[in-house]
Amino acid sequence: IERARSFGGVYHVLNGALAPLDGIGPDDIKMKELIARVSPPAVVREVIIATNATVEGEATALYIARVLKPLGVKTTRLARGLPAGGDLEYSDSATLTSALSGRREL
């Protein structure tokens, strides 16, 4: 994100993802601190979620969105799909599915 030089906001690092089967819950990934940072009187318009495309990452992203919704904070997620310069033949079905669902008109 830093190398892209296209993000001018601040970060909040969760230090992991929710993994209930491994005993990792919201208190273990700094969710209280995130909620405190975006709660009024803070003026946060958007939280961009950048978790891995794993079951745990998806669960964490959905949890964050659900928790922040009552605070009126817009939550978005980084786009996923085919990398620039990537070959279709080396892409897995999950990547292709994500790329197809996130397509945009030219």
Rank of each mutant, 00 (worst) to 15 (best):
T60C: 06
A59N: 14
E56F: 02
E56G: 01
V55C: 01
T95M: 10
D87I: 03
V67H: 02
A84C: 03
R66V: 00
S98I: 00
V55I: 15
V73Y: 01
Y63G: 00
G86E: 10
L82C: 09
T97K: 13
G86P: 02
V73M: 02
L71D: 09
T75C: 15
E58C: 05
G57Y: 10
V73C: 02
K69D: 12
T95G: 02
S98P: 00
Y90G: 05
A94G: 00
S101E: 11
A84R: 12
L71G: 03
L78Q: 06
G85Y: 11
P70Y: 11
T60P: 04
L100W: 15
A99K: 04
T60H: 08
I64D: 04
T95F: 01
K74G: 00
K69F: 03
V55E: 14
K69N: 08
K69W: 03
D87M: 10
L100D: 06
T75D: 08
E58L: 11
V67T: 13
R77F: 07
G72V: 04
V67R: 11
A61R: 04
K74R: 15
P70N: 12
S98T: 02
E58H: 05
S93A: 15
T76W: 06
S93P: 00
A59S: 15
A59K: 11
Y90C: 01
T97Q: 12
L62T: 02
R66Q: 15
A94R: 12
T75W: 09
I64A: 05
L100V: 14
T95S: 10
L78M: 13
S101I: 05
S98M: 08
E58N: 13
K74Y: 03
L78S: 11
R77Q: 11
R66A: 14
D92L: 05
V55N: 12
L71A: 04
G81T: 08
L71K: 13
K69V: 00
L78N: 07
T95V: 13
T75S: 13
K74A: 09
